[in-house]
Design a protein around this nucleic acid. Structure first.
Lengths: 229, 229
DNA sequence: CGACCATTTGATATGGATCAAGCGATGTGG
DNA sequence: CCACATCGCTTGATCCATATCAAATGGTCG
């Protein structure tokens, strides 16, 4: 729930004169972009944005920072479902409860939008409805791709992960990773040791260079793509 | 493509007076169900319904039989993305090409619907648009669940698979599997040997009984759920 | 500077893959 | 109706990729 999580973890920061409890849907109806319907909030590093099984009353659009969504498995292990970067919209569920938890990996600024407002708008505006559908479809494609990645070898998964991140955050050949090895491991279904060793293998193969722990230089993308399987 | 695949693999069987090349969208506009927009076709066991990268010009709704969608990986292995049973709609892609291939596991009767007709209808009818969206959303949930399954142990994957199939095809405690061990293995990211051994483990744990190769009796669902992780 | 935490590196264990028979249905031709 | 071939599956033996356990290292922040 917004109020709980917000008060517990983030500091409020309103967009214009709107209160997050009562965004004026009408105001956005002629704006074209749904983010004008929400309030901007700050979340500190490692703070919870929402928890699994909480009611999914809000959508979230990242202004700055990185978010992970994850599930805690019965045996205590974490499985990261996705990393979300600036511009990404997340927290959009099919049912009315979140199926994953969401946490800020870094300090984040996030626009929080009431779901019911978006849905009401979508019911009137075909264009908004189509946007929501496309959002779901893109997410489906992403998860399908990730699914396929999970049956590959460790080295292939790490190579694929770097290529994915390069597409999303790279400036030139440099990938600045916002997340820890632990997060990467939990995303790829591996251990941190295996991630570390796979990175070394890729480095030995001259495909990448680990400049600093979280700064990876892609030295040879064709090789990386080949190693991605 | 419909014509190619159809002529190659299936025998035509028209629904009413419609030809599959020119379904009369208008006829279905006031019907409420999209299947009235299509023609019913038969596909023989193991015949291809469509191939990866072919244009996704049609949707498919299964009347009878079972279908697998799959990808052939670079190393030649097959990964099954989903099994589709009577009532299921499949072949609905985000882009305009199929991202998986589809094959009939058993002899099938399938209603084939022109995608453009459905899309045109969805543009006018909010209700149809919402149905399409929900279809995508349900598929997303399924793939997400499958994703999580792929990081579990072999025994957990098989237990989960049996529970999934039980929800879909079970009459009482009996699950009649329409697919081979090879298909199951390719769906779960395992080998047939491991699937076979996992079934034996579940049988030893008194959770199931393998009556005939493709007839599984669920003897203890709580135990199965526990073994599912 | 010193403590801490994330990461790397090394040694060993193990779950599932691979390789190789064996077996039991199902079908086929004599 | 029965020998025989075939195919899908099971069972057994061994191997290998990755997990696990255990230090060592190094970057970061007080």
């Amino acid at each position: 729930m917004l109020t709980q999580s917000a008060i517990r973890n983030g500091s409020f920061k309103q967009a214009g004169t709107q209160s997050p409890g009562a965004p004026r849907a009408g105001a956005a109806a002629h704006a074209g972009t749904i983010e004008l319907m929400g309030a901007c909030m700050s979340f500190a590093r490692n703070s919870e944005i929402y928890g699994e099984n909480e009611p999914a009353d809000y959508l979230y659009k990242i202004v700055s920072g990185t978010v992970r969504t994850y599930k805690v498995l019965v045996d205590g292990r974490r499985q990261v479902g996705a990393f979300h970067l600036p511009g990404d919209i997340f927290g959009f569920e099919t049912g009315d409860e979140h199926t994953f938890s969401a946490e800020a990996i870094t300090d984040c600024k996030i626009i929080v939008i009431k779901r019911s407002a978006v849905m009401a708008l979508a019911a009137r505006d075909n264009d908004v409805a189509r946007q929501m559908w496309e959002l779901t479809a893109r997410e489906l494609q992403r998860v399908q791709k990730h699914s396929l990645a999970l049956i590959k070898t460790a080295e292939e998964r790490v190579a694929g992960f770097l290529l994915e991140m390069a597409d999303r955050v790279a400036s030139g050949g440099t990938v600045e990773l916002p997340m820890s090895r632990q997060d990467i491991a939990a995303y790829l279904g591996l251990t941190i040791e295996t991630v570390s060793r796979s990175l070394k293998l890729l480095e030995d193969a001259a495909a990448i260079e680990v400049a600093r722990r979280r700064r990876i230089l892609l030295r040879n993308r064709p090789a990386l793509r080949r190693l991605n399987g």
